[in-house]
Design a protein around this nucleic acid. Structure first.
Lengths: 279, 279
DNA sequence: AGTTATAAATAAGTTTTACTCATGTATAAT
DNA sequence: ATTATACATGAGTAAAACTTATTTATAACT
């Protein structure tokens, strides 16, 4: 094994690029003396002269030029990777449903950005997730068989309507009907039972996005049977109200899809923050 | 600029390749503790976890795997270049004429190899030189306008014959006639004048290689008008003799073709040795 | 179940290297 | 001739790199 220090090679690389020990020193925040020492050391260990010294000028020997070609390519490969790594570590990707993104995540991200100005969050919604095993995925579904530490919320459902729009008309009821047929539906019957209501009192309209149902209710087109998480902010703002209906619990909830790799530091910060949004 | 030490990256690279701090330590002749320190240091500086630690086992994170790919390729590029450099620095190439190679250089190389067993010399002869600016080139020609420090010898010419073969027949005379027409010919007329001889006394046969002329004389087919350097060894061994003829001087000689790059240490050793062969 | 063995982590040292300062040299620019 | 610049050299300092001793966790054994 050739016993030369990586530091010396790094210095050599800079000197070779600049054809100057002084400029190399400036680039690396070193003294020219130190550069001179490093290169002399390298030459001695290799038993090969790398630079031809003229007064106030150094030139690579052919051997030096060969080595410089390799160090230039080698170090830049490594440094490019380092930069990419650091850059993408500042930026985390979150996959989730469009309803959750629009009603909960994206509005809340303003606070996250304030708390963590150096972390960029990009939210990705849509059916076919981009394959990115670095991403955090927030799913909505049956949480009965999900590991406890992955669960973000267990949703309660209730009937909400916009109290500000005249003619408080409970009908029709906009109701989410998840695309994924293996999911249990919204607990509408349980809710009716709990509030001593009869299904005959309501016309039902189903959309495959909970978000659309909520938007109809906001517009005053009727009321919405929605999960608590998605309407909590609207309720706080007085845009929607549950009147005096009682919420009903469910097996549905938001959870983090497990991944084989551990979260990065930035991801962990996001996940910790995310949990707080459900308390 | 990302401030991570190359040493730490080197250690990371080994650890990544082995998926083990201990094996990395073994490879680099370090302690596992030191490897652990280096990688922890790297992770802290980058703010990115590179390995997932389980008991008695470490695995790369996706970030770690990305970096490992770059370090693997980068360091191997550099190390390959270093090895090639060191290998080829042990081996020097010498271009010269076939006559000089056969009669002088190759026989003498035995001594050189004894003095410098770690330097491999390869001799290249032939018309079209391989383009290799690392090589040493020994030329034969008019030395009148060659820099003094490049000159190896100024040749004297004389008539030689094999005294051991009966019927010492001076005729014919084998005479080199250089392919390169711009070269002054062998100083035959000057020699005749100096030895008070007449050109009518000799039948001349010209070959474009001095070597072939010498071989004819060794075989007893006649005598040869040759340069001192090429026959000196044969004269010492008694294979050829100049009888009592007087040598004549010339402007022809051996010289090192100048090069823009300085000689490497090994090349300098060879050149120093080469000069001694002409004293 | 308890013991041993192994890989890594941690803390506190030691050694090595990387680096700087002061000084000197050669030479191009003034 | 004088100044300024780029590099070399030697000696000393600061900062890594590295080690030893010890601890932790757990896989692999009795």
């Amino acid at each position: 094994m050739i016993n030369v220090s990586m530091q010396a090679l790094k210095v050599f690389d800079a000197a070779a690029r600049h054809n100057s020990f002084k400029l190399a020193a400036d680039e690396l925040n070193l003294t020219a003396t130190n550069v001179s020492h490093h290169i002399k050391n390298l030459e001695t260990r290799l038993g090969i002269e790398l630079f031809i010294r003229k007064t106030r000028e150094v030139t690579l020997t052919t051997a030096g030029a060969d080595l410089a070609k390799a160090t230039g390519s080698g170090f830049s490969t490594i440094e490019r990777a380092l930069h990419q790594l650091v850059d993408q570590s500042k930026c985390i990707a979150v996959h989730t449903t469009s309803s959750f993104a629009a009603q909960k995540l994206i509005p809340a991200l303003r606070d996250f950005a304030k708390l963590n100005p150096d972390i960029d969050v990009s939210v990705i919604t849509g059916e076919h997730l981009v394959h990115d095993n670095q991403a955090i995925t927030i799913r909505f579904g049956d949480i009965s068989h999900i590991e406890k530490h992955q669960i973000l919320s267990i949703e309660q459902f209730n009937l909400y309507l916009n109290p500000n729009i005249g003619g408080i008309n409970q009908s029709p009821v906009f109701m989410p009907k998840w695309k994924n047929s293996s999911l249990p539906g919204a607990p509408w019957s349980a809710w009716l039972r709990q509030n001593q209501m009869n299904h005959k009192q309501f016309d039902l309209i189903a959309y495959d996005q909970e978000l659309y149902c909520i938007q109809e209710a906001i517009a005053g087109a009727g009321c919405v049977f929605a999960s608590h998480s998605l309407v909590s902010m609207l309720e706080q703002n007085g845009v929607l109200t549950s009147s005096d209906h009682q919420p009903v619990s469910s097996n549905l909830g938001y959870y983090l899809s497990s991944q084989e790799v551990r979260y990065s530091q930035q991801q962990q910060i996001f996940v910790d923050w995310l949990r707080k949004q459900f308390i």
